[in-house]
Design a protein around this nucleic acid. Structure first.
Length: 585
RNA sequence: GCGCUUGUAGCUCAGCUGGAUAGAGCAUCGGCCUUCUAAGCCGAGGGUCGCAGGUUCGAGUCCUGCCAAGCGUGCCA
């Protein structure tokens, strides 16, 4: 309907340009928006106010000329000038009813579109180090990323979801070493566990698995393990040096066994993460291994490419990327003095790999604490000869957990954190997803566990789901009362829907496709949640003030068609968010 | 110090990219179940949009400067 009005206005502008009222070379962006207030009609255009200056004319006068030049259209019943020069459009009531037919015909596809035109987009999200179970901080990224991906799919993009597995870094070595030390404890060795090791209970679980598989094969006397190892922090030393030495020692003492322990940790934890996310309604097309970039020479290749284009130099025995010439604050090391690549080096290779895979758009979803990392990655993409605007980094703030008014304390290091699994157990998948995505992703968020589990009207998840269940309930009542339903007759007598509440619902329903599109293109799932709450509210209000199963069969059929459309749109929206649309509650 | 993000009702947050009288939920107060599910609805109170300038027909939204909070500023990931 917006497009129709835009076309009409365009026509009027052309006419005025031909008459010489408006300059021909004017670049005009016609914006039609929905009126917030029903008094202002259904749609409004601010065109006259924007053009007033160029035309050297009072906006209201110009609006009058525009309206005079407007072609007739059946869908428009009245056009007004209001306020400083708004052009308000009142749409014909019969045109408003068309949306019900559209919803009925398109069903589950209603709201989908092709604005993405099949362009290839990659959405990479969560990508937490596989050094332990996901915690609630990752949950928000998971919920947000998956909905962004689903929204983009709904508007016609060809979306690939990817998880980048950081299986190559030092953190993984710390994990493997932690597992081995817990294993030695299992064997009965008097282990002093390093302060920088991973202390979570899951490390012991993996260690026990290893023990079950190899018995004492990897057992070494702890005295030997500790020989000449620099002291840990509480012993007056440096905890980083201590753990690094332990890692090196583990590799020496275990030989091939080290890789075995390492793999046990990686696969166990990755399987757990995969399973966890799956149950949270998050699935990926690809799990991309960082180690594979090192193994297949991609990192070396990426650096060679940077070197060839003159973006690398050596200093202090290390290899540097001159990112400061491309907008970064300072240059960054890609290969350390000790010959090892930095994390950033594999990230350059990773993004080169993404570029080579031919995505039109690359979306990285990161925790907001990584925001300082954006300029260097963009610099890398540019240095690789690609367009840095292809990369869109979306930031997700952490959520602070509350139980009522009480803040839930968390600390990853000590192992005392709330896992995503615990959250799902406590509040359920639907409430968790809904709450995570309810707020703008860059906004700090307070997640109240008590509210999310409350089965009262306080809880917005139930509010929306209840609206869906209520429609279903009406149809059950219809059957119980033995009343017939005639869909076609309902469409035929659709103009019996003359109540204010019905008009409001029709207009809200019509807004769904543009809401989905806006939410998708601006990566803002909360727009969809907001919409669903509005639609649910419109419905509940309607429900409370009018009976649907009335004696007048024609009116009844018309109303059933309306609420059936409401149910369809609620279901479509809930599905996009990967939430259940319950038939009863 | 510099950079990024945030600042809107008592609390948690929206505000459609510059539009008309700044909205919603919770909380508070007052109403509505003999009727399709009260997990619902209706009503009331509650605001210097952090502060000060600027841009223009028009600013919560844009620009500048302050103030406050969070994060970043590693040859960590």
């Amino acid at each position: 309907m917006k497009q129709t009005l835009e076309a009409l206005l365009k026509h009027a502008v052309d006419a005025l340009q031909n008459e010489g009222v408006l300059a021909k070379d004017l670049s005009i962006n016609i914006i039609i928006e929905r009126s917030r207030d029903a008094q202002h009609g259904d749609f409004a255009a601010n065109l006259a106010m924007i053009l007033a200056k160029h035309a050297k004319m009072n906006p209201r006068v110009l609006a009058e000329k525009l309206i005079a030049a407007l072609p007739d259209d059946n869908a428009v019943s009245k056009v007004d000038i209001a306020g400083p020069g708004f052009i308000n459009f009142f749409m014909d009531a019969s045109a408003q009813f068309d949306i019900l037919k559209v919803i009925h015909e398109q069903g589950a596809d209603f709201g989908h579109s092709q604005v993405g035109a099949g362009k290839k987009v990659q959405v990479e999200f969560v990508s937490a180090n596989p050094t332990g179970p996901l915690h609630v901080g990752h949950g928000r990224g998971a919920a947000y990323g998956s909905v962004v991906a689903d929204l983009l799919t709904a508007v016609g993009y060809n979306v690939q979801r990817e998880y980048y597995v950081n299986d190559a870094g030092r953190q993984m070595d710390i994990l493997a070493t932690s597992i081995w030390l817990r294993y030695l404890e299992e064997c009965g060795e008097p282990v002093r566990f390093p302060e920088n090791g991973y202390r979570g209970e899951y490390v012991r679980d993996i260690a026990r698995d290893v023990y079950r598989n190899v018995n004492n094969d990897y057992r070494r006397p702890f005295d030997l393990v500790l020989e000449n190892i620099p002291a840990d922090e509480s012993q007056g030393g440096d905890k980083e040096a201590h753990i690094d030495a332990l890692i090196a020692r583990a590799k020496v003492l275990l030989g091939d066994g080290y890789a075995d322990v390492f793999r046990a940790g990686l696969t166990t934890i990755l399987d757990d993460i995969r399973d966890d996310l799956h149950e949270f309604g998050v699935d990926y097309q690809h799990w991309f291994s960082e180690q594979s970039l090192v193994n297949d020479g991609s990192v070396a290749k990426a650096l060679a490419k940077l070197k060839a284009s003159g973006h690398l130099y050596e200093k202090d025995g290390a290899l540097w990327f001159a990112s400061s010439t491309l907008g970064d604050e300072k240059d960054r090391v890609v290969k350390r003095e000790n010959g090892q690549y930095t994390y950033f080096a594999s990230d350059i290779a990773y993004h080169m790999h993404k570029l080579e895979r031919g995505f039109d758009k690359i979306i990285d979803i990161w925790g907001a604490d990584h925001h300082g990392y954006i300029p260097r990655v963009k610099a890398a993409i540019q240095a690789l000869g690609a367009d840095a605007d292809k990369l869109h980094v979306l930031l997700v703030q952490f959520a602070t957990l509350y139980r009522g008014a009480e803040k839930v304390q968390m600390s990853t290091r000590s192992g005392e954190f709330v896992t995503l699994r615990q959250l799902r157990d406590e509040v359920g998948k639907d409430a968790a997803r809904f709450f995570y995505v309810m707020r703008r992703s860059e906004q700090h968020m307070d997640f109240d566990l008590q509210l999310a589990t409350s089965k009262t009207s306080d809880n917005p998840v139930y509010y929306v789901q209840y609206a869906h269940a209520r429609v279903c309930s009406v149809f059950r009542q219809l059957v119980e009362k033995g009343l017939p339903r005639d869909l076609l007759s309902g469409m035929e007598f659709i103009n019996k829907l003359t109540e204010e509440h019905e008009a409001a619902l029709l207009s809200t329903l019509a807004r769904y496709p543009e809401t989905v599109e806006r939410a998708a293109l601006s990566y803002e799932p909360h727009q969809l949640i907001l919409y669903l709450r509005e639609l649910a509210n419109d419905f509940h209000t309607y429900y409370n003030s009018h009976q649907f199963l009335v004696d007048d069969a024609n009116l009844r059929d018309a109303r059933l068609n309306l609420i059936s459309a409401v149910r369809q749109v609620l279901a479509n929206g809930l599905k996009l968010l990967n939430l259940h649309a319950p038939e009863s509650m």
